[in-house]
Design a protein around this nucleic acid. Structure first.
Length: 476
RNA sequence: CGGGGCAUAGCGCAGUCCGGUGAGCGCACCUGCUUUGGGAGCAGGGGGUCGCAGGUUCAAAUCCUGCUGCCCCGACCA
C-alpha cells in the first residue's frame, strides 16, 4: 500500500515531499528554489483565500494592489527593515536593455511602497483608518528552500492598516491575530498557540510581533501567521502625518499582518498520514468522491444511473465527484483518492445496489460503514462535520501529548531532541540567554503566550528570576 | 557560503571502474482483447542530441579538462 510514499517514521522530510508529489500539489520549477503550484495544490489555496478574504471583509478591510517593484531608496528608509530584508532581496538592475538609474527591489513585503502611498492619501483624522489587504506574490532569496514552507517566491496576503491612535493600531493587530487563530482552528483544524515574539524574533521594523505557532507531526513548531504592530516606525520613515480633531499634527500608527502558502505545508504536516494527504473538509476542494463498481456494461449503466440519482440534490451542499472512469479499476481509484486526501469516499457495487446501501469510507480513520441510500446525504454531511472536528481533536491531543513543563536545562537538552515538542520554560527575558538557548540546543523561543502562564520561577539558562513561562521549540 | 550526492525516455534507475555486442530495465504512455469490491492480465507499439562545451582515440554514455543545473544536510528565514 501507498507505493512511493516514504513512511513518516522512516524519514519525515522525505515523507513530506512524497505526499506533495503523490497528491500532485506542486512540482519543482526550473528556477532554483521556486515551485509550481499544481491545480490540486492551488485549489486548496483558493479555499483558504475564500475563507480568509471573507473574514478580512467582515472586519472592514478592502483589497488593493501595489507594485511588485520597490525603489531601493524606499527599502532603505526604515533602518531595521532594510537590515532585516535587504540581504534576502532580489534586485533588478537593468530594464529595457539599459542599466537603471535606481535599482528596483522585488518586494519581499510591501510596507515601504504602501506607506509611500499612504503619505499621499492621509491628511486628516477623517482619512483614518485605512484598512487594506493585498493578495500577492513576494520574493525572498532564501539559502535553503522547501516546498510550500520556504520557497524563493511565494504567495500570501499582507494587510496594511493606518490608524489615528496607538490603541487602535494595537486593537487591529490583536484582532487580525485572532482572525488567524480562528482560521487555523476552525478551517484548518489546526490548534495554535497565540503569542508575542521576542525582540530577537520580531519582524524587522515592528514594535511588536504577534504570531500563531502550530506543532507539526515531527513535533517541530511552525509559525503559521503573524500580525505586527508597527507603531509609528513607517510613518516616521515616510513622513506620514495627519491633522487631529484638535488641529495638531501626529504621526500615523500602523499594522501589518500576513499568512502565506506556507499554510499548505502546515496543513500537510498536521493531518496527513503514510497513505498520503489528509485535508479537512472545510478546505477540501473535493469533499466526497463516489466510486461506482460494476461488472459489464449493463451493470455500469445501472450503477451510474443510481449514483446520479443519489447525488441529484447535492449541488450547493457539498463538493463531490462521481468517478466513472472505465480505464481504472476500483482499487486503483481508492488509492488515488486517498493519496489526494478526499475526506469521504463512497463505494457502491452490485451487492450494495441490491440492498439499497452504499459503503462510506472516512479518509481520516479508514473506517468503513454501510449507509442506507435513503439517508446518504444526511450521513455524508454529518460525517464531514465529524471529520473536521476529529482532525482538530486528534491534532490537539498530539500537541498536548508532546507539550512539557521543563525546569531542568540538562533534561531539556535531551528531550528537545527526543521526543521533541513544545516546552514551557522560564526565561529571564535576557537576549543573551535566548541566544545561548539557540546555540546550544537549536531550539528557539517561539512565543510568549497570550494566555499567560504566570508563576514565579528561575530562567532555564541563567537561573535569574522569571515571572511567566514562554514557549520553546525547534522550529521550521 | 560550507559538507554530501546526482545528471542516460515523462518518472525512477542499470550500464561508466575495464572505450567496441543493435543504449537497456521498471513504472507511466498509445492500440486491441479480457477484466473491474484495495494499485489488473496478455499481445503489440511509440518515445533518447546519454546535462553543456572542448579534448584523447579508428571508435566515447564510458577516459581527460572546463562549465552548468538540481537535490539533501548545516548557518539565515513566513
Amino acid at each position: 500500500m501507498a507505493k512511493g510514499i516514504t513512511k513518516r517514521s522512516e524519514d519525515y522530510a522525505k515523507w513530506y515531499t512524497d505526499v506533495i508529489f503523490a497528491a500532485q500539489l506542486a512540482d519543482y520549477a526550473p528556477v532554483r528554489g521556486c515551485m509550481v503550484i499544481r491545480p490540486n495544490g492551488y485549489a486548496i489555496w483558493e479555499k483558504m483565500q475564500q475563507a480568509l478574504d471573507r473574514l478580512f471583509k467582515e472586519t472592514g478591510h478592502m483589497n488593493a494592489y501595489f507594485p511588485l517593484f520597490i525603489p531601493e531608496s524606499f527599502m532603505k528608509k526604515e533602518a531595521e527593515h532594510v537590515e532585516g530584508f535587504a540581504p534576502e532581496c532580489a534586485v533588478v538592475t537593468h530594464g529595457g536593455g539599459k542599466k537603471l538609474e535606481e535599482p528596483l527591489y522585488v518586494r519581499p513585503t510591501s510596507e515601504t511602497i504602501i506607506w509611500s502611498m499612504y503619505k499621499n492619501w492621509i491628511q486628516s483624522y477623517r482619512d483614518l483608518p485605512i484598512l487594506i489587504n493585498q493578495w500577492a506574490n513576494v520574493v525572498r532569496w532564501e539559502m535553503r528552500t522547501r516546498l510550500f514552507l520556504r520557497t524563493t517566491e511565494f504567495l500570501w496576503q499582507e494587510g496594511h492598516t493606518a490608524h489615528a491612535t496607538a490603541e487602535e493600531a494595537e486593537a487591529e493587530t490583536r484582532q487580525m491575530l485572532d482572525v488567524y487563530r480562528h482560521f487555523a482552528e476552525t478551517y484548518m483544524a489546526m490548534p495554535v498557540i497565540a503569542g508575542v515574539k521576542t525582540e530577537k524574533e520580531k519582524f524587522a521594523g515592528a514594535v511588536r510581533t504577534y504570531c500563531i505557532e502550530a506543532m507539526m507531526q515531527d513535533r517541530r513548531a511552525l509559525q503559521a501567521g503573524t500580525s505586527h504592530n508597527l507603531g509609528q516606525n513607517f510613518a516616521k520613515a515616510f513622513d506620514v502625518t495627519y491633522q487631529t480633531e484638535g488641529g495638531t499634527r501626529e504621526y500615523v500608527w500602523a499594522t501589518s499582518w500576513g499568512v502565506s502558502t506556507r499554510l499548505i505545508g502546515a496543513l500537510i504536516m498536521t493531518h496527513s498520514d503514510d497513505q498520503g494527504l489528509v485535508v479537512p473538509p472545510k478546505l477540501a476542494p473535493l469533499q466526497t468522491v463516489f466510486v461506482p463498481i460494476w461488472h459489464g456494461d449493463d451493470e455500469r449503466a445501472r450503477s451510474l444511473e443510481r449514483a446520479d440519482a443519489l447525488t441529484s440534490d447535492w449541488k450547493g451542499k457539498l463538493s463531490f465527484k462521481i468517478d466513472e472512469r472505465e480505464n481504472y479499476r476500483p482499487g486503483w481509484k481508492f488509492n488515488e483518492w486517498e493519496k489526494r486526501g478526499v475526506p469521504i469516499r463512497i463505494e457502491m457495487g452490485p451487492k450494495d445496489l441490491e440492498k439499497d446501501v452504499v459503503v462510506l469510507v472516512r479518509r481520516d480513520t479508514g473506517e468503513k460503514r454501510e449507509v442506507p441510500q435513503s439517508q446518504l446525504l444526511d450521513v455524508v454531511l454529518q460525517t464531514l462535520d465529524a471529520i473536521q472536528q476529529s482532525l482538530y481533536d486528534r491534532a490537539l491531543k498530539y500537541r498536548e501529548e508532546y507539550t512539557f513543563y521543563e525546569d531542568d536545562y540538562d533534561s531539556f537538552k535531551k528531550k528537545i531532541d527526543d521526543p521533541g515538542g513544545f516546552f514551557w520554560i522560564h526565561w529571564c527575558g535576557d537576549r543573551a540567554c535566548e541566544d545561548r538557548l539557540q546555540d546550544e540546543t537549536k531550539a528557539t523561543i517561539r512565543a510568549i503566550p497570550l494566555d499567560k502562564i504566570e508563576e514565579e520561577g528561575r530562567c532555564l539558562l541563567c537561573g535569574n528570576a522569571s515571572h511567566e513561562r514562554v514557549l520553546a521549540a525547534k522550529a521550521y
